[in-house]
Design a protein around this nucleic acid. Structure first.
Length: 499
RNA sequence: GGCGACGUGGCCAAGUGGUAAGGCAAGGGUCUGCAAAACCCUCACCACGGGUUCGAAUCCCGUCGUCGCCUCCA
């Protein structure tokens, strides 16, 4: 079986074959850091995180670079407004994005190059483009000459003539062709600038990516990714300038994710219709966004909305239900049931790989995992023990992990004092006689251990339940619910989990 | 105007020639003091109109609609 990837360059799904067997080089365009990131950026990072994780799962050694564009017009403009040095502003947002990626459990890239750290390489490339006559200098700017490139437009499927006709922007008369793009921009007074043979300036947007790829990954890479809004002109231009220099195909597989839609159009900072990652994470746990991404296909647009977020959150909860322990008092499920379960687990692993190999069909994969969850829960219902379920649960956990889902609920740091308050309230309501039957927390004993205190509270609750003292029973459950602890009763006893 | 993607049940969505996975929501049931969870059951003539085929959500043509790119953008 081979992994198959849809390649924007050929518009076909192709067998994946890296340049070097067993090793993959992968470059993804990261954000321009002139402001906070929104969930669309998160989506893109998640898509390629999933790709990367799966490649690793399939045994590849992956060298992964994600860049930060830390100098450009928007950063300069924003910095001026805020009265902050542009590079400091960029640095601030890079740190913020790093944090957010970590929160979203995006694995760290092998390298995080940034434009400003690549200036010597960029200058060298511009110089070589000029030598080759592939670029020309005008007033300190350097432009790439698109007409010199006979296959310009091959990625986006455009012809220069067509674009000429539809050019919407004012044409810069100094350029030989309207589509010529800057590889070096002369600095205006007060702008960040680096010395170059053409005068002080900074890199054009596209050249930095080529330089970073060459420098960190090599002249040819296996996978180049980004949002599909980057196909033209950004990636087209990267190809043009890179291949002019090397004469070799720049990237073998071009992968583009669909864009996040919000309020009927794409979410973007320039349109201002965005949900920031920060705002999202204040309301939802990180894996909810990952679930949204997994439930759709990465190449298609993903619409952001309350109902969809809610659905993703519930789905995540459902996956977790498969990992729950045996019911209290479980005595074992019939062999036929557990044998069928073990068989399904193995089939699921096989089908998981088939689906992921098919251009990362994560939505189909989720379907497989939900099916597995249902079967696990089924055997649990008929009394399976932890031993009987653990093999299958391990498969569920493993495959979810390949998708980057953690499933294990995060332990909360709940102040033990808040739990002790519930004990205090109970004491007031329970008479001396009954109090004898109850084990109360002792000072210096369990006091600091919140989970242990909750367990004790449930023990007390069991005593109360046996006596059918529902008011007190519910008081405990409600009290814990307010602290984010969910109590669930079943025939064999009660259990609790973090909400 | 040019290039491209898409239109599957209330919502998300898989499926690209053999009579529709899965999740959420909804309704019914089991369990249960109540609640929650879990389990079981129910819920689609695949935008529309033609065509090809023994057979189409899946291929072809047309219509309508939505979105992206052509300007900075994940």
């Amino acid at each position: 079986m081979t992994l198959r990837i849809y390649n924007t360059l050929t518009r076909r799904t192709e067998d994946f074959q890296p340049l070097e067997p067993g090793r993959v080089t992968m470059y993804v365009c990261g954000p321009t850091v002139y402001g906070g990131a929104h969930v669309g950026h998160g989506m893109s990072s998640l898509v390629f995180d999933i790709v990367r994780r799966y490649l690793v799962y399939r045994g590849y050694e992956v060298r992964y670079a994600m860049n930060y564009t830390d100098v450009d017009d928007k950063i300069i403009q924003r910095a001026k407004q805020e009265g902050e040095p542009p590079l400091e502003l960029a640095e601030r947002y890079i740190e913020e994005y790093d944090q957010q990626l970590k929160a979203l459990s995006v694995l760290p890239a092998t390298v995080y190059p940034r434009a400003t750290a690549e200036i010597p390489y960029i200058i060298d490339m511009v110089a070589r483009l000029l030598e080759d006559d592939a670029a020309y200098v005008v007033d300190g700017d350097v432009y790439y000459r698109v007409e010199k490139d006979d296959d310009y437009g091959k990625l986006s499927g455009r012809r220069l003539e067509d674009m000429h006709a539809g050019a919407r922007i004012d044409v810069d008369e100094r350029k030989e062709h309207p589509m010529d793009f800057a590889v070096w921009k002369a600095a205006k007074p007060g702008e960040p600038a680096w010395d170059s043979p053409w005068g002080p300036g900074r890199p054009g947007w596209h050249i930095e990516c080529s330089a970073m790829v060459f420098h960190h990954l090599g002249q040819q890479i296996d996978i180049h990714g980004g949002g599909n809004d980057l196909i033209f002109p950004h990636h087209e231009n990267e190809i043009a300038q890179s291949e002019s220099l090397t004469g070799k195909p720049f990237a073998r597989y071009w992968m583009h994710n669909g864009l996040m839609q919000f309020s009927g159009e794409k979410m973007s900072r320039s349109l201002g219709n965005l949900i920031s990652i920060k705002a999202f994470l204040e309301k939802h746990e990180p894996d909810v966004l990952r679930m949204m991404v997994l439930n759709s296909s990465y190449r298609h647009p993903l619409t952001y909305g309350d109902e969809i977020v809610e659905g993703a959150a519930r789905g995540l909860e459902r996956l977790r239900s498969g990992l729950r322990p045996a019911l209290p008092g479980a005595t074992g499920a019939p062999k036929t049931e557990t044998a069928a379960l073990a068989k399904l687990a193995e089939e699921t692993r096989t089908r998981f790989i088939e689906a992921m190999d098919d251009d990362f069909n994560t939505a189909a994969v989720l379907g497989l995992l939900f099916e597995l969850v249902r079967q696990i829960n089924q055997v649990r219902e008929v009394g399976a023990t932890n031993e009987q379920m653990q093999g299958t649960q391990a498969v569920l956990f493993e495959l979810s992990g390949v998708l980057g889902l953690r499933l294990k609920r995060q332990e909360k740091n709940l102040d033990a004092g808040l739990v002790l308050k519930i004990f205090d309230e109970l004491r007031k309501e329970i008479d001396a006689e009954m109090s004898q039957e109850i084990r109360w927390p002792t000072a210096g004993g369990e006091n600091g251990n919140t989970p242990q205190l909750i367990d004790m509270l449930l023990d007390i609750r069991d005593v109360l339940r046996a006596k059918k003292l529902w008011k007190l029973t519910d008081q405990i459950r409600d009290g814990l619910a307010k602290l984010g602890v969910l109590v669930e009763d079943s025939a064999g006893g009660s259990s609790w989990r973090w909400e």
